[in-house]
Design a protein around this nucleic acid. Sequence first.
DNA 1: GTAGAATGCGTGCATACACACATAATCTGA
DNA 2: TCAGATTATGTGTGTATGCACGCATTCTAC
Lengths: 153, 153
Amino acid sequence: MADDDDPFGAWRAVLLAHSRALRAIEQDLASADAIPLGCYDVLLELNAAPGRRLRMQDLAARAVLSRTRISRIVAELERAGYVERDPDPHDGRATLATITATGRAVLRRTAPLYLAGVEQHFNRYLTRAQRRSIETSLQRVIDAHQAELDLRR
Amino acid sequence: MADDDDPFGAWRAVLLAHSRALRAIEQDLASADAIPLGCYDVLLELNAAPGRRLRMQDLAARAVLSRTRISRIVAELERAGYVERDPDPHDGRATLATITATGRAVLRRTAPLYLAGVEQHFNRYLTRAQRRSIETSLQRVIDAHQAELDLRR
DNA sequence: GTAGAATGCGTGCATACACACATAATCTGA
DNA sequence: TCAGATTATGTGTGTATGCACGCATTCTAC
């Protein structure tokens, strides 16, 4: 009961759990010669987007990654043939990234690995109710930051 | 109700909340010309340790950082005069890092900034009960990974 | 219509990071 | 006692990441 005196325990727990679980998942993926997490995340978002394509900026907003990193990852994915980059016909400044058939195949192959990693290193230690609670709570934090970013435009 | 069909929503929420909040907090610290988070974390752990000193390895185990990074950060902190490094009298291989009076002063000056950042960008959006729940749940994940690491030795 | 502001994107550069290796010290089993 | 295994740490090196900047395009006010 005394340990809730630490008003920053939740933040510290997020920091540590994120660090530990992510490291373990990434190592599993690397051992299996799968694409790294950043690439997976980009392919996932593209695949879920309408038309399987997204402007670079929208991609950066959805993914966990910074705009610079998105630019580099998409360039790498393009070299690998998993993604195509075409100029946006409606806005000459923008670039549309589209996932290719090859990219989708890779995504289908990698997804089970990634999901197994999350199950093994994270979900496994939590009840369904705990996961629901975490998701609901943290979503408020995420939404607030998203709103602030939208405001800044 | 249908959105709890996603068994990985909690993991995704941790990923996003961590990314968004951490970025915001770090930017605040940088704007205030404070020491970066890694340095803060190291000083914090040292200050809380018995005798205000810790072997490099123990430091790495407690902090969120990798062993390599700890080594470099401590070297930097030593150059700044915030930390002293002395050989462990009981084990010639080990190095003891000790926080100096200057380091403690810096820590006292920085702590309010950091705590304000956590309050502003994270705690603020959660109730006390939600924070308690998050801490308790994620602690299970942390403990499990810690146990696995200990086992590997 | 046009000049200037704003936007979307990519890239040079400096920094940060982890992996693998090197070094020094300690432990272990005869 | 002593050779080999183990442990604690530091560091060279390649890779990754973010910031600041530059270029091209679009928008806006007149």
